[in-house]
């Protein structure tokens, strides 16, 4: 339950924040959520990772479907031969790793204060 709340908070706040803040704000969101809401380090990491992975790859999917994959294919080629269809996953993975790291660091921050 706690995990789902954490996940929802991270996804919700990151979704809203992205429209008027720099691209890395989601890492701060995951950090603060991880610090205030998580119980265990792994839980914080997993919520941060999954939350941003889902958010970013879903948005990327939505955009690439409307675009019929034109740009994903070109950017994949430009970034060293990533297939266009994999670009949303790559996008999600990068965001997810940073989100997970943010959550985990947040969790550790609380433990460091305790």
């Amino acid at each position: 339950m706690r995990f789902l709340i954490l996940l929802a908070v991270i996804i919700g706040l990151s979704f809203i924040a992205q429209f008027f803040t720099p691209w890395w704000t989601f890492a701060i969101v995951a950090f603060v959520s991880g610090a205030l809401l998580s119980e265990k380090a792994f839980q914080a990491f997993a919520a941060g990772f999954l939350g941003i992975f889902l958010l970013w790859s879903a948005q990327a999917w939505w955009l690439t479907i409307g675009n019929e994959g034109i740009l994903a294919a070109k950017m994949g080629e430009l970034l060293g031969g990533v297939p266009g269809a994999a670009m949303p996953w790559v996008t999600g993975l990068l965001g997810g790793l940073l989100g997970g790291l943010g959550g985990w660091t947040g969790n550790q921050a609380m433990k460091a204060i305790d």
Binding site: Q18, W23, W56, A60, L63, L71, A72, T91, L94, L98
Partner: peptide, 15 residues
């Protein structure tokens, strides 16, 4: 990071 962010980077140009 900026380039891959769906609300900031190249995805914004996926018309």
């Amino acid at each position: 990071g900026f380039l891959l962010s769906p609300s900031h980077g190249f995805w914004k140009q996926a018309e």
